[in-house]
Design a protein around this nucleic acid. Structure first.
Lengths: 130, 130
DNA sequence: GCTTGAGCTTCCAGTAGCTGGAACCCCTAT
DNA sequence: ATAGGGGTTCCAGCTACTGGAAGCTCAAGC
């Protein structure tokens, strides 16, 4: 299968697929014309990575998960460690963003948003804690 | 004031402060020895940017907010547009992350995390939708 | 057989926002 | 004189792609 079909079936841009080959996530075969020839296994790997990326796993996480996926003697604990660590990061990010949202929402709510020059948002940002 | 003191008072790394000069957020004066000499105004600008960045505003947003801050005839509406747009982005990101967290938490919860090789996390990632 | 257009290839550069490191200058204290 | 702790510039690298240029290949139509 050529790259465009793979792209269509995995919902990954062709550029991204080439990039994934570059960094060694997949190693598709090549035809005599130099075109990449993707196997079903390549497709599955790409779909796997696509799903993991969609869940926010880093490329390095994906690389490790792929290795564990291919390694039949793996223990589920190894996978869980990666997933739990990622989950922790997501939860930290959620708390951080949530705090940002609260502050910002309060500021936006306080701001008249009209033509007057006084603006509580700027005033807050300018508060000197230095 | 030299860069290290500014760094201490703004909680911004010296590298970051130099970078902010590079991209034109501040333009500190220079002494005869070539050292940057920071004014109180520079300090305030840096603190302002630091707080805006802490709230997740992009550098370009910071640039615009700085300009509005310095522009006395500005209308608070201009600021509000930037802040509201950023708030929308944060809320979108929150929803996205929240969805990731739910999926991941479910998977991690399902995973035995022991030495058995069957792992629902990998199985889910491998689900073929291709 | 020739042309045309789509599809494939590689490689280089750019994105955001820094950060690390090298090589070198400056100032003060001993 | 020297040692150290400032400061300076510039270049490279990080993440995970993405855009674009230059050029090869393939299939269809004439």
């Amino acid at each position: 299968m050529n790259i465009k079909d793979v792209s269509a079936r995995t919902n990954l841009p062709a550029k991204t697929i080439r990039y994934y080959e570059d960094i060694g996530l997949i190693t598709p075969a090549r035809g005599d014309n130099g075109y990449r020839r993707f196997s079903e296994n390549d497709l599955h790997k790409l779909a796997f990575v696509g799903r993991a990326r969609h869940l926010g796993f880093s490329i390095e996480d994906c690389r490790n998960l792929l290795a564990l996926w291919g390694h039949n003697g793996r223990s589920s604990a190894d996978v869980r460690v990666i997933a739990q660590s990622h989950l922790d990061q997501i939860e930290a990010k959620l708390r951080e963003l949530s705090e940002m949202r609260d502050t910002l929402a309060r500021l936006v709510h306080c701001c008249a948003g009209d033509n007057r020059p006084d603006c509580p948002i700027l005033e807050d940002l300018a508060k000197t804690h230095i």
